[in-house]
């Protein structure tokens, strides 16, 4: 069974499905940078993602183009709700520039730990968001901290544009 007691697919499962599932294997180039899946109610309870062409070289900052595709999966089933190329269906009106991302101050081990903590936090937070209820402020504060660790500011802006309703809810919550 894919869903948890909350009736939603666990966030860790959403992430792993998007990281190596059929869509990734057949549509998203391996070298593209994947966003974090973010909760949204844009098409009903779901998780939205985007992917961007990127250039990585050892010891150098990653250079990332604007997102060129985005998609949404149903939070209750994990099935694809929408998949679009940004050139055909943009997910926001503002254009994004090509970014030379700042090198994270966190180590790989710290980033991995943040990623693990994100999986644990996102389940109760997304359930509250989907229900339109507030989440404990401490929990939301922890999530903001993790997002800030994992996402350089320019990328955080792209994530915010992807799931505006979720970020607005976080501010309210």
């Amino acid at each position: 069974m894919r869903t948890s007691k909350s009736g939603f697919v666990p966030y860790a499962r959403i992430r792993s499905d998007q990281s190596n599932g059929p869509l990734r294997q057949s549509e998203i180039p391996i070298q593209h940078a994947l966003s974090l899946p973010l909760p949204t109610r844009r098409f009903g309870p779901g998780f939205a993602l985007f992917a961007s062409p990127a250039l990585r070289e050892p010891g150098k900052p990653t250079v990332q183009s604007p997102p060129d595709r985005w998609w949404v999966v149903d939070a209750k089933t994990g099935h694809l709700t929408l998949y679009a190329r940004v050139a055909s269906v943009p997910f926001c009106e503002e254009p994004f520039p090509t970014l030379t991302l700042p090198i994270p101050t966190a180590t790989v081990t710290e980033l991995r730990e943040s990623s693990r903590r994100l999986n644990g936090l996102m389940d109760p937070i997304s359930v509250a968001f989907f229900a339109g209820e507030p989440a404990p402020a401490e929990m939301v504060g922890d999530l903001k901290g993790i997002l800030t660790t994992m996402l350089p500011t320019p990328l955080l802006q792209q994530h915010r544009a992807l799931a505006q309703d979720f970020f607005r809810w976080m501010e309210w919550a």
Partner: peptide, 23 residues
């Protein structure tokens, strides 16, 4: 193999969100 370059190179700049991003 499809790997995460940040993990392989021990380079946080190439880690991204921790997904596989290199062959």
């Amino acid at each position: 193999l499809v790997v995460n370059a940040g993990e392989l190179w021990k380079d946080p700049a190439a880690y991204g969100t921790g997904e596989a991003n290199h062959s």
